[in-house]
Design a protein around this nucleic acid. Structure first.
Lengths: 249, 249
DNA sequence: CTCATGGTTCGACAATGCCGAACGAATCGT
DNA sequence: ACGATTCGTTCGGCATTGTCGAACCATGAG
């Protein structure tokens, strides 16, 4: 056995491809996308259907992700120590700031949202747990990037989300320096127009940054004339410090 | 190739076993649980780690689920038609009833929660999307069970969650009959003490039940002297009918 | 009505991954 | 402090396992 099991790796590639778009894919499309013969793919797909990781549309014969994955994903949240330890602090942060609170980790070049508390007194928000945020255009991402030992500033080019998004690698590096020295990150309408965010790093007992926590809300509530209200910054930093302390025990 | 690919099936079994408990498991434990040689498992685990489905604790060497699964699970939600079509209705239901709204599907003998709207004006609730509810002890489960062609009342024995849980198979069958004729299900403190729930079926364009929608809240708000307030029942049934109509288009 | 495209089946070949025993490290119990 | 377990990991031979490509039907478009 050389290094890694071929069929399992291929199965994972199929799942990732199915997850990459909202569309459901057929055998032929997958074969083209992965450069594998149709017959081979069919065998793996049959197995994935059997274990519930993939579902097949009875009408068209095309394939999509299965419900078992949803359950496995939520099981991951139970195991995740960072999340279980920080849930209460995120609730408190949301309550004190009266804005939505977020917790994220670095994962494959993106910020993976592992917890999300809605803004109090404001329903009609969709939950973002499990989704990706861009590292260069989010407060959480800047914090994680700034403290990542491998300093991987996501694969260029930096995609602009609004006209305020930092797309110049040099400017991003300067911004990350500021984040490092200051200890927290701001994001001024760089991901969504009209929304700003604040984030601070969470460290484990050895001092390495394992995640970030922050809030996000309308610019008119959190800032005046482009300057953040510092009370919100202290809320976020307090929460981050509390979780860090909690993880050290 | 007989029927299904061995290594992929084994990989899935590993993931399910890791998801079954909050604890992280070692190679030896997995080998015992699955009846496979340690060496074999190690190879599959190495691959699962490589694709991010599994993480290994650097300290203890034990394995736990990986972050990629969380992202795959949330991707499933994007693809799921029932969910995308019913989100708005669930929001409306939660708003009108001022209680938490839930949408679930039958999956491997459990109710899989695919959407969950918090109760308005009440933060500090943990999201339940992706978790399982028992079929025999939840309003959603009763609805789904009552209309399941394969009529699988979950594997006995029926586990009691409170002293009101229906644990007698005969009594459950009677209850399901009532649900069928009445068109909706009630659950009076059968899952959690002090909480009641109401649910109604969602059908696709062919008329088969593909899911259920309902609300859940404190018994003192939703009922008086053990009798549900019928206005809540109509809220739920209205929402279910609206989604059914929506799916038919 | 034809043709292209999509999902599925099949059988032969050999590459692939399974297995069991052996290794070194860590932990537990005494 | 020291054996005795128990753990995660490595390795190489064997045959089981999965890969491959061509052939098979359905479906839908032109």
């Amino acid at each position: 056995m050389g290094e890694t099991i071929q069929s399992v790796e291929r199965a994972a590639a199929i799942l990732r491809l199915l997850a990459s778009g909202p569309r459901q894919l057929g055998v032929a499309e997958l074969a083209r996308g992965l450069g594998l013969p149709k017959g081979t793919l069919h065998g793996i797909l049959r197995t994935l259907v059997h274990v519930g990781f993939v579902e097949q549309d009875p009408a068209t014969g095309k394939y999509r992700l299965g419900a078992t994955l949803l359950h496995l994903g939520s099981s991951y949240l139970d195991v995740n120590e960072l999340r279980t330890r920080s849930i209460n602090w995120a609730d408190a942060l949301a309550g004190r700031s009266r804005e939505s609170a977020w917790i994220g980790t670095l994962h494959e070049g993106h910020v993976l949202v592992i917890h999300h508390v809605f803004r109090p007194d404001d329903s009609m928000q969709t939950l973002q747990v499990g989704t990706y945020l861009p590292t260069h255009a989010s407060a959480l991402g800047k914090v994680l990037l700034a403290h990542d030992p491998y300093a991987e500033p996501a694969e260029p080019p930096l995609r602009p989300h609004t006209k305020h998004t930092i797309i110049d690698p040099g400017a991003l590096e300067e911004e990350l320096d500021r984040v490092r020295t200051r200890g927290w990150a701001a994001e001024m309408e760089e991901l969504v127009d009209g929304e700003v965010a604040i984030a601070a790093p969470i460290k484990d007992r050895r001092g390495v940054v394992v995640g970030a926590i922050g809030i996000r809300g309308a610019v008119e509530r959190l800032a005046t004339d482009g300057a953040l209200h510092m009370e919100y910054v202290s809320y976020v930093r307090d929460a981050a410090r509390a979780i860090t302390r909690d993880l050290a025990r």
